[in-house]
Design a protein around this nucleic acid. Structure first.
Lengths: 221, 221, 221, 221
DNA sequence: CATGAATGAGGGTTCATTCAT
DNA sequence: CATGAATGAACCCTCATTCAT
């Protein structure tokens, strides 16, 4: 290939044309790079308003490159979901819920999950939650797996109480969901921009624990 | 001038316009018809995957007719939001929260709001919530107004307790949010398809009231 | 998420995209190709009656490709205008109007500009003129720059005469415009299809020069 | 497509026509009202950017009413053209070009036509000119009739000179066009917003006459 | 593997025209 | 005749995806 193609103007650098990007050694992190870029843009603009061009730009790559690592745009969302599930499950595994008193377990657990949101996980959650609310097929497939870890951990946590007869079995089901809902609701309100929650986020573990254990009347006792 | 200007290759015969179905007589509720059709499709497919053609088909109208009643597709979402706000505010006004004991007020309030979701409001909420999570501009403008009614009602409900010194002022803020979150979280879990919640939805008012007032340990006392 | 979200009545199978004709290798002149195609169609059908599909077809490209090179349809018009301006200015620069006797300069200048119209420039001019007459915003921005080159050249051409006191300064302004108008008017009449002008176009340089220098009565003198 | 296809065009006075059903008192000016409204909006926004709704609003009527008086939007333009033609022809008829010396006839004629533009006619001209430049079919049908009156008048005006042998017959053709072009060019430059012309518009009749009769060198003689 | 121009189906929106009232 | 809501073809434009380099 000649170096004097159709540039017309001559004079400037006639350096031999080199591959725009020399062949990179296989980079297993490329996939992660893309995914992280995607989350950032999704969080800013929402999944549907984000174009693949946006993601490519954010990742510093060409648009076509995305398709070497993900089958399509949807796959990015699914990968995000997988990531969130893993995280959730890892935390759940880590917590030895049934080995511990609720009084110490609950705040630690809340703390742990809320911390995760303070870091990047909130962005992903917001995107995924929106899509789950909106996409029936995705919801049928994944909705359960999103809440499941929390439900499981809560169930284990309350199992002893239930075992001791303090909670009737049919109460357990709703109670567990109530605690998960309390947590999830806080997260959603935070995602919706509640300023008070943003400022007092660190107080939540204790506050929620108090509420769960004793209701709002505790202090009055 | 299109009938005069066709020339050369591009010119083609203007197809005679034929009305397939004669239009209906004037309907003052046309705006409502469209809005309801829109919610139904939004709920099925999500806002972004819903086309204006979908909405028109669902409403039994021509696509262009939508634009005689709404400026654009976004306006449908805003109209939805307005509707939800009115609903929320109406309920809030109705409830004489500070005139009543929490024991009776809370379950009644929960009941009222949850009932609304059992009917059509849930569809709208799901759509709007997803969009609020995803659309920063919309969120800045409307997010507060979505949660505000619940927060206000909760604040009024707890005002007496706070007035009696049972809640410190700085507790009030978080407590109120915790109750709102408990409620919101339940709704979201329901929207995400939780089967247990769907079946035992009618038990929630009492169960949530118990939790709020006494925590999970109530039965043990 | 379109592959996951199709549900209910609206869902239909995604048609597999098949490229009809493999695209051409990278062509740096693609922008020019498009622009030239656009002028041709504009000239045939007028700007507003020309669809982007028309242009694409004329250029042998897909419709979307236009938008890789021009921001929108209007940008094609502006690019046309820029081209015309450059042309006009180049000619103006070339002509050493104030170095030469009017008797030799004028016919040469007329010849030069009229030749340009015989080639492609007339199409562009016709389109742009129509739009300038019709689009106030465009007119405010560009109208002056369209006539300016001719006015400038005419001013320079008459400067010596004016300097020698043969034209009073306040005459210069109108005289210059009269000559520009004479030229412009001829062009417009030609664009409007005057058959006589088409046939005797080559006589114009001399005829106009005679008129400008001596009026219609010259021969009688 | 005939220029007279509009309903009831054949009768000059509409007083003869009497509706059998005088629900509204028959208003022969309604058509004129609409046409004038149309010109105003066309002049502001251009023909293609003007919607029938715009015209209806400007005329203070409902959109459908337009179609009781004009077959379609194009017909408004044709009616405009007819009006301009009549005007032009009336002026041409009025002027006794061949009965008068050029020195007095020319400035009076220029004056007359330029005055017309100072009033409303310029708006219509600008719209029609743009469309003629742009619409081949319309151009073929009407372009000649737009310039014809001026050409005819000029021909008659110069006929004596030609008859006296001062202009060779083949010169006459081009000379006539040159004068028409001078006039037309001035109008176009004015329409394009030339500020100088706007301010010194009243000087044109004399200035143009001088140029036509003696060329730019007259004063120097 | 990376690139990014090309693709074209499909989206939201406009608007001339119709017609029941 | 006047009205104006309804119509739907057609427009401009977007953007996920492909593939030659």
């Amino acid at each position: 290939m000649s170096t004097h193609s159709e540039c017309g103007k001559e004079g400037e650098e006639k350096t031999i044309r080199q591959r725009a990007t020399p062949r990179q050694p296989f980079d297993p992190g490329r996939r992660t790079t893309i995914l992280q870029a995607a989350v950032r843009v999704f969080a800013r603009k929402g999944f549907h308003r984000t174009t693949t061009k946006d993601i490519a730009r954010e990742a510093g790559l060409a648009e076509g490159t995305l398709y070497n690592h993900f089958q399509n745009k949807d796959a990015l969302l699914l990968a995000l979901l997988d990531g969130l599930n893993e995280t959730g499950r890892r935390e759940a595994d880590f917590a030895a819920a049934d080995q511990e008193e609720l009084e110490t377990f609950l705040p630690r657990y809340f703390q742990q999950r809320l911390d995760a949101l303070e870091q990047g996980a909130g962005d992903a959650l917001s995107v995924i939650l929106a899509e789950l609310l909106t996409n029936a097929e995705l919801r049928d497939t994944y909705a359960h797996s999103l809440v499941a870890p929390t439900l499981e951990i809560a169930e284990r946590a309350f199992s002893r109480w239930a075992g001791q007869g303090r909670l009737r079995p049919e109460q357990l089901e709703l109670t567990v969901r109530a605690v998960a809902a309390l947590f999830l609701g806080m997260v959603v309100m935070r995602l919706l921009g509640d300023e008070t929650l943003r400022q007092r986020w660190h107080e939540l573990p204790d506050a929620l624990t108090q509420l769960v254990l004793h209701g709002i009347g505790k202090d009055a006792v």
